[in-house]
Amino acid sequence: MDRTWNNKAWFLVLPVLVLVAFSAIIPLMTVVNYSVQDTFGNNQFFWAGLDWFDDTLHSERFWAALWRNLLFSGIILAIEIPLGIFIALNMPKRGWGVPVCLVLMALPLLIPWNVVGTIWQVFGRVDIGLLGRTLASLGIDYNYVQDPFDAWATIVVMDVWHWTSLVVLLCYAGLVSIPDAYYQAARIDGASRWSVFRFIQLPKMQRVLLIAVLLRFMDSFMIYTEPFVVTGGGPGNETTFLSIDLVKMAIGQFDVGPAAAMSLIYFLIVLLVSYVFYTVMTNVGKGAEQ
């Protein structure tokens, strides 16, 4: 083996290391640093050990926000994934309808988060909003500012409107990659519409669905801007998700210690749940072997 050992090659990855250090590692370490200290301002810090983690894990406020977040992500996935698959299945596969549908689907994705929030905030207002007034004139008592259920419904519908397209586009990409021969063979084999979905389309969409589920879970679990703009976390704390609570704590109350501890726990939860999703979905069906 005539291998040339030259450690100077490491300098080639130095720029990336520096970049990642500044963009991720150093901020993360700052948070870790804050999470084990207490401060009373004036840049004076005191060692607090794991007290903040202990406090957070025993705080009702944290568990309530976490529960709301999990519920929200669950509802979002339960609606957006089936709906996205359904729309993708019914999109045209060829002809002039394809670009039209793709553009329509991509539109919501191009709108910035806070604009989406503002749109729905105005849209749902009972005094001037199209949706709010229409519902009111139909005799439905709808008010997202005061009624927790209405607030939830508004945010869920808003998120579905905003993000189902992503699932649709991913599924559509999976669907159009299926060669015609599969559908032809299915017809030869006398397969029903459901069998075609179950045994051809769904397996071929599995990989993109995994990406869709992960993206939608992480995004909805970290949702901040839209509910903040529409409900501000209210009524009461009914729509206060972890991220909103975190910002309140860190910036509103300037409790950097507890906020840092909470964000680390938050980060670990996202990581853990994503890992579970990934493992489950990549192994799905493998049990049929043997």
């Binding site: 063979a185 045994f199 051809i200 049929a288």
Partner: peptide
Amino acid sequence: LPTENRNIAQVFQFPVIYDTMT
């Protein structure tokens, strides 16, 4: 008559199998 009622078997150029089945 649609394909499924013609009782025809057809083998295509590229193998078509149902991945998730045994």
